[in-house]
Simulated assay, not measured.
Amino acid sequence: MNIEVEDVTFSIHDKRLIDSISLQVKMGELVGLIGPNGSGKSTLLKNMYRVLRPDSGLVTLDGRDLLRMKYKETARQMAVVSQDAPQTFDFSVRDIVLMGRHPHKKLLEADSALDHELVEQALERVGMEAQADQSFATLSGGEKQRVLIARALAGQAKFLILDEPTNHLDIRYQLQILDLVKTLQITTLAALHDLNLAAFYCDRMYVLKEGKVVSSGITEDVLQPDLLRSVFGVETEICVHPRTGKPSITFLPDSLRGGAAHDINRTNGDPMKYDKL
């Protein structure tokens, strides 16, 4: 599945939050959406998964106008995992994943053997089959996100939107979630807060500032010190990680900016250089 955003604009009370944004995610890609707080990442995603409606522009799924599709049909194609797990009553993990089958069912239609088979397969793929009967509310943050991804798998979603899904997780669970998403090979657009994680996992990325795309392309081309300075207001040194071949970013405190910045982290194998990778 390919998704394309064309000149999408969105405003609230005459304040423009999204300004003529265009982007594309091709089948099988994991594309990152990065930018400082307030840059419009979550607002753009909400316009894509129809919590908000654009003032103008077009969002298409495989060439079809998303805004003209029925909500149930959209739910069959697209799944969303946000940074905050939903508040639920005392549902089991299996019940939460089974909810992913609802867009495929008629009103009051009973769950079928196929529904339950897809649920079990999804739980197995995310490594949560042992917790199937456990209360969702008792899970850790990382476990909850894995269950929500399983719900998307059970619903056979072809496009996945991740709205900062690792924002409140410790580094172990951040890596687990993004490892999982990468191995699923589902077309994915992910708003990510951590630039080193974005650099490692994303095939391409779009950079937002004040509601506009200011840069886009493959990760190695986009993540440059001048861009990070202008967008995030930080000084950085960027090198290629010797094991991954991906960009690795060192953020410099004020005390090390300027001339001293060029002398730090030059030693091969310095573990601080490769934080979070």
Rank of each mutant, 00 (worst) to 15 (best):
A110W: 09
A110V: 11
A110D: 14
A113P: 09
A113K: 15
L114W: 10
D115C: 05
D115N: 05
H116Y: 14
L118P: 00
L118Q: 11
V119H: 05
E120C: 11
Q121P: 02
R125N: 12
R125W: 09
R125V: 14
M128T: 06
M128P: 01
M128V: 06
E129I: 12
A130F: 10
Q131A: 15
A132Q: 10
Q134A: 12
A137L: 11
T138S: 15
S140W: 13
G141K: 10
G142W: 08
G142R: 05
E143P: 04
K144I: 04
V147S: 09
L148A: 10
I149K: 01
A150R: 01
A150T: 02
A152Y: 01
A152R: 04
A154P: 02
K158Y: 00
T166F: 07
N167P: 02
L169S: 14
L169N: 13
I171K: 13
R172M: 07
R172V: 12
I177N: 09
D179L: 01
L184N: 00
Q185W: 05
T187F: 02
T187C: 07
L192V: 08
L192S: 03
L195G: 11
N196W: 14
L197Y: 06
A198Y: 06
A198G: 12
A199L: 09
F200W: 12
C202P: 04
R204H: 12
R204V: 00
